[in-house]
Lab assay of single mutants.
Amino acid sequence: AQASVVANQLIPINTRLTLVMMRSEVVTPVGIPAEDIPALVSMQVNRAVPLGTTLMPDMVKGYA
């Protein structure tokens, strides 16, 4: 199954992502693919992302 990017902590709005904030997990619905984690580093989220939330393309500025 495809692993997705999941928030490893609460990520406040406009925060630049770092590796420690993200983990890969097989979840439904599928979000951003886990292999994109390196590309997500330093991108900003456009909303607060609670712990355990799957990151979707529309949550990350410049990803989609």
Rank of each mutant, 00 (worst) to 15 (best):
N8G: 14
V20I: 14
L40W: 02
N46L: 11
D58C: 05
V49T: 05
T18E: 10
K61F: 15
N46I: 14
P33G: 06
P50H: 08
L40Q: 01
P12Q: 13
N8H: 07
T54H: 03
E25K: 15
Q9E: 13
G52Q: 04
N46Q: 10
L55F: 10
V5R: 00
V45H: 00
A3F: 15
A34N: 06
V27A: 06
M59G: 03
Q2F: 08
M43H: 12
I32S: 00
T54L: 04
V26D: 09
P50D: 10
V5Y: 01
K61A: 13
T18M: 12
P12W: 05
E35I: 11
P12I: 06
V26F: 07
P50S: 12
P12M: 06
L17M: 07
I11V: 09
L10F: 12
I37D: 01
K61N: 15
I13G: 11
M22L: 12
I13Q: 14
T18V: 11
Q44I: 15
D58V: 08
L40F: 00
L10N: 13
V60P: 00
A3K: 07
D58I: 14
V6H: 02
S24Q: 09
M43A: 11
V30P: 11
N14I: 03
T28G: 06
G62H: 13
Y63C: 03
L51C: 05
S42I: 03
Y63A: 05
I37P: 01
Q44K: 12
I37Y: 03
R16L: 15
L55W: 01
P57C: 04
Q44R: 13
S4F: 02
I11T: 02
N46Y: 09
E35Y: 15
N14H: 13
V5G: 02
S4A: 03
V60G: 01
G31F: 02
A7Q: 01
K61L: 12
G31C: 03
P50I: 07
P33L: 14
V6Q: 03
Q44N: 07
N46G: 06
A34C: 05
V27M: 11
A1T: 13
L55M: 10
V27S: 07
Q44E: 13
E25P: 00
D36E: 15
